[in-house]
Design a protein around this nucleic acid. Structure first.
Lengths: 341, 341
DNA sequence: AGCCATAGTTGAAACGTTTCAATTCTTGGG
DNA sequence: CCCAAGAATTGAAACGTTTCAACTATGGCT
């Protein structure tokens, strides 16, 4: 592999000159410039990223880690998120290093290691939560990072998040427009921050429509198909006048569970009870019936977090530290005018 | 950030001694050893990966890139594959760098860049195909890589692949056992190497059972739900005595399309016509009916390719250069005894 | 003619490691 | 009491860059 020395020798100049030419960081006569460029091209020279990094004390690498999910779940955003981050990073000469989030032990341990060994210049976090130990750790050490998702309101750190509340609010508005009044929500446990935003959007939507919310319509359960199914069964077991005609869920996975419960009860989603999901996983459009759901602008989030992080790393000021992106409601057939209406 | 100099000063020794202690690469008296270790711990010292890399001319980073898929498809393996690779790499002090595969231009351009700048020590390739330009490029330059998937038979390079033929063969055997005789296959276009293995498995299964294959039963089409749906419609349009009672598909996505076509025709998958998929995406188990499908041992593939690549990088001999792992048939309700039988 | 600014170029230091070769220190054998 | 051998330690070079400071021409100006 040719080094800067080989190029310098071939062009008959010093290595400093080669460096200046390649980085355009000093005035060089047109003639030597051409000679150096030619020599570099002939040798197929590319400067060593390792040497550069050492000198600059910058690895030009961004760390990203995600939670691995069990096989019956899926990660609805990994592919588009990672891809958009990689693309955004590469246009600026950066790369993404992915590492595994250990299922046990200190969540910030791998972050510490990458940080202390100088392997990465900053981190992108996703699936943050209240009191997130990783956010706390990085914040305390003043290490550059940007999160996809929020944490404690009083913690001041840069993030991009989807306006989850707006998503469920749009879902409720849509159902209200169709004529639904008794709208339930299949929500996540209280410890989920994202879940609390989505639930809040539901409540706001109902309040805006002026509809009372029966406490029985708020079912909190974990993120799983079976959980969604059981939640729906519980809702169906309510007396007819309290039984919801539509249900908003926290995720497509839970929406699928809800739809499956409807089928088992001999009912048809979209005709007997409307169902709305969240995420718009690729599968959603092929379901029976196709699922109405809230689509997050994942690629936009990915591009944004990377751009913000690079600004942070370079010490540039951030135009905004807290970015909220609007999701979009994708209306399909699982939501429809309820027959009972 | 403390350096080896800080540790040396604090322990009252030379930097060489510190290095020897930390790497256990020379005999050091127990007493100084303890002093150095204590100093390092007090300072929270971690050797700079950058400096180490430069010195060793090894980045300890593995490059991986994947094709981004359009939003109505999905990448059935990215999450488990990437995760298992990251885990396997980390146990050996390596990391995974992910980069975007450009949709246009030379597919090997980003590989070249990462290779020449010394950013990565080797590559993992996935979704290889016949005449794969990336395989060709890396092979020509003798750069370490391991592929998940095969290419031209005559190209000698290390790979791990799932025994695709065995997968579809198992699917056919299972259907034969249920009593099916007229079994169709919804296959991929001829340019797909993986598709040709899977098709081959189907043919082998039929031959082993001694059943003739009607040419109309082999439908070649692209990887999409709509394509699977249309293929199924074509099969249903065959005269009753030639109409298949079961269908094997190349992917869960296409199987879903086939099932949707059945529904539209007023038929029920698993009762009127059996359907088998490939991949076992998380969704498969929640479909109506749950989808019988072939599950690939993705995590095992991920661990294997990384271990092989590390061996290659270290110049160790490979126990086997061509590894074929068996998939597993997951039987669910979409395959059943056909009513017409 | 003399001086100074500037364009163009270079030598050398530094980034933080590892490791070779050399040095010091100990110890046991003759 | 000296020497050789070995153990323990160190100085310095090297990995491949970037960049500071210094140097040499070249002109322009007084």
């Amino acid at each position: 592999m040719p080094t800067i020395r080989d190029v310098a020798r071939r062009a008959g100049v010093s290595i400093a000159t080669v460096s200046y030419v390649l980085n355009e960081s000093a005035p060089i006569s047109e003639e030597t410039r051409a000679r150096v460029l030619a020599a570099a091209a002939e040798l197929g020279y590319r400067p060593s990223a390792l040497a550069r990094s050492l000198r600059a004390r910058q690895s030009h690498i961004i760390g990203y880690s995600w939670h691995h999910v069990p096989r019956d779940h899926w990660h609805p955003i990994l592919d588009p998120f990672l891809y958009s981050m990689a693309q955004a990073a590469e246009t600026e000469g950066y790369h993404i290093l992915t590492f595994a989030q250990p299922t046990d032990g200190n969540p910030w341990l791998p972050y510490q290691e990458l940080m202390l060994t100088g392997r990465v210049d900053g981190f992108i976090l996703s699936e943050t939560n209240r009191n997130d130990p990783r956010v706390r750790y990085l914040l305390d050490r003043d290490f550059p990072f940007v999160a996809f998702g929020r944490a404690n309101e009083e913690w001041d750190f840069p993030y991009v998040d989807v306006d989850n509340a707006a998503g469920t609010r749009m879902a409720v508005e849509h159902l209200v427009e169709l004529g639904h009044r008794r709208i339930a929500v299949i929500a996540w446990p209280e410890d989920s921050l994202t879940g609390s935003y989505r639930l809040q959007g539901y409540l706001e939507g109902m309040a805006a429509a002026g509809f009372p919310v029966d406490p029985a319509w708020i079912v909190r359960t974990e993120h799983a198909e079976a959980a969604g199914r059981q939640a729906m069964q519980a809702l169906l077991a309510l007396p007819p006048d309290r039984r919801p005609t539509a249900v908003v869920t926290m995720s497509d996975l839970m929406a699928i569970g809800a739809m499956n419960a409807l089928y088992e009860a001999g009912l048809q989603p979209g005709r007997d009870v409307s169902v709305v999901g969240f995420d718009d996983v690729p599968m959603a459009q092929y379901l029976h019936p196709p699922l109405t759901t809230v689509r997050q602008p994942i690629a936009e989030v990915g591009a944004n977090v990377v751009q913000m992080l690079l600004r942070l790393i370079r010490g540039e000021p951030l135009p905004e530290r807290r970015v909220l992106l609007l999701p979009r409601l994708i209306v399909r057939e699982s939501s429809g005018k309820c027959q009972a209406l």
